[in-house]
Deep mutational scan, measured.
Amino acid sequence: KFNKERVIAIGEIMRLPNLNSLQVVAFINSLRDDPSQSANLLAEAKKLNDAQAP
Score class of each variant (00 low, 15 high):
K46E: 03
I8G: 03
F27K: 01
F27D: 01
E12I: 14
L31P: 00
L42V: 11
N29R: 11
A26G: 13
F2L: 15
G11V: 05
K47I: 11
K46S: 05
L19I: 03
R6T: 15
A9M: 07
P54T: 09
I8L: 11
N49Y: 00
M14N: 04
D33I: 13
N40L: 10
S30W: 11
N18L: 02
Q52V: 05
L19C: 04
L48G: 00
R32N: 15
K47A: 10
A53C: 13
R15Y: 04
S30K: 13
A43G: 06
D33Q: 05
L19V: 01
N49D: 04
E12Y: 12
P35A: 14
S38L: 14
L42W: 03
R6P: 13
N40A: 12
N29Y: 05
R6M: 15
P17H: 08
I10P: 01
N3G: 11
E5A: 08
L31R: 00
L19W: 00
R6H: 15
N49A: 03
A53L: 06
S36A: 12
L41I: 12
N29H: 10
N3T: 08
S38P: 04
A43L: 11
K4H: 09
N18C: 06
I8V: 07
I8Y: 07
S38M: 15
L16S: 01
S30I: 12
A26E: 09
L41C: 09
F2V: 15
N18G: 02
K46D: 01
Q23P: 00
K1Q: 15
A53S: 08
N20E: 04
L48C: 03
S36F: 09
K47P: 01
A45G: 01
Q23M: 03
R6Y: 15
I8T: 03
L31C: 03
Q37Y: 06
N18Q: 02
F27Q: 00
I8R: 11
A39T: 12
R32H: 11
V25N: 10
L19Y: 00
K46G: 02
M14P: 01
S30Q: 14
D34S: 07
R15V: 07
S21P: 11
D33Y: 10
E12R: 11
E44A: 11
L19T: 00
A51L: 10
I8C: 13
P35S: 07
K1H: 14
A45R: 00
P17K: 10
V24A: 04
P54N: 10
D33T: 11
A51Q: 07
Q52P: 02
N3L: 08
S21E: 07
